[in-house]
Amino acid sequence: MNSAGIVALVAVLALATAFGLWRRRVDGKFNETKATSVAKEQHLTAGQLGQPLGDLATLVEFSSAFCAPCRATRKVLDRVVDDVHGIALIEIDAEQRLDLTRQFGVMRTPTVLILDSEGVVRHRAAGQPRYADVVGALGAVVPGASSTS
């Protein structure tokens, strides 16, 4: 046993635990102020996204190839789109669209943006969101959306 190794081990486990607990707390939580402050341009069009926007709101998911929570997130969002009328889901490969990844300051996948009917970014979550959080955030963007299902 060597003292440097013991110090390194304890430091790594402590830092990683702190990081993991912090991530667990913020993961998938929607944030309104971050949605409006991070993006340089807070607006997305159907042309940029390559797909039409939803009538009431649009969920935009940034995904990447080596990302297990992206697939789980996709399933959650698919359920939301099935349950709530007028919502479109657009999945973007962050690698393919580095322009949008940069424009919206996406640092990790999955990142989910919620756009209102005009394509304005209103909400944002990094990490896998829970169903109730997505519906709750949608409710803030589209009055009445949460009661549709």
């Binding site: 993991g20 991530r23 667990r24 990447s64 190839a65 080596f66 990302c67 297990a68 962050a94 690698e95 580095l98 990844t101 940069r102 996406v106 640092m107 990790r108 996948t109």
Partner: peptide
């Protein structure tokens, strides 16, 4: 934590 550090680094390296 079922958290994949390398997977997140991947996008940052791409950027």
């Amino acid at each position: 934590f079922n958290f994949c550090l390398g997977c997140e680094m991947y996008l940052l390296f791409k950027r």
